[in-house]
């Protein structure tokens, strides 16, 4: 984690940061590229019975067990039609690997910090807790995902 932040700091000194864009439903999201470990295509996922609905299951990534998170469920969107291809973005949190299941990935964008804005007031509370901020792109809004917060939120309440 400290490696990432150092690099991020280096990035900020250049006034832009690189985000991997991804699509879930009609919304475009961004994750700082340095948080992304892998981008995967469709995977064989083992269901975990009795798990919360946001957990799609587990998958095997080069010998490590990765927990698959259904992003649509997290964001309160309906599931995709069966048969639609999914992609996943693998991130790490607290030593564990998670695979965020999304619709598709987009490009890596290099966006200036000056365009970074706080969450608009109109953002739903559910999304507000998952989003760090937004970027205004030419014709749409890009929401920056707060991955650690998303994953913390899924932990069982003690």
């Amino acid at each position: 984690m400290s490696a990432v932040t150092t690099l991020e700091r280096m990035e900020s000194s250049s006034n832009t940061r690189e985000l991997l864009t991804l699509n879930v439903g009609d919304q475009i999201f961004g994750i700082p590229i340095l948080q992304v470990q892998d981008v995967l295509g469709a995977q064989k996922i083992t269901r975990v019975p009795l798990a919360p609905p946001a957990i799609a299951g587990s998958l095997n990534l080069r010998g490590r067990i990765v927990t698959a998170i259904n992003m649509r469920a997290c964001l309160g969107m309906p599931d995709r039609d069966a048969g639609a291809k999914t992609m996943s973005v693998v991130v790490e949190n607290n030593g564990e690997l998670y695979s965020l299941m999304i619709d598709s990935v987009g490009d890596v964008m290099n966006l200036p910090y000056s365009d970074y804005e706080k969450n608009p007031a109109t953002l739903s509370p559910q999304w507000r807790s998952l989003c760090q901020g937004i970027y205004r792109l030419k014709d749409k809004l890009l929401v920056v995902l707060d991955v650690p917060r998303l994953l913390e939120g899924l932990q069982p309440q003690e």
Binding site: K44, T46, V48, G57, L59, N60, I65, T67, N94, P156
Partner: peptide, 27 residues
Amino acid sequence: VKPVSNILKNIEIFSGNTILGDGSVIM
């Protein structure tokens, strides 16, 4: 035996998960 992800640790029915010879993950 690999421990379950933190998110799933309170499901008492599972004590862990593993990867089988064919690569699939099972509880």
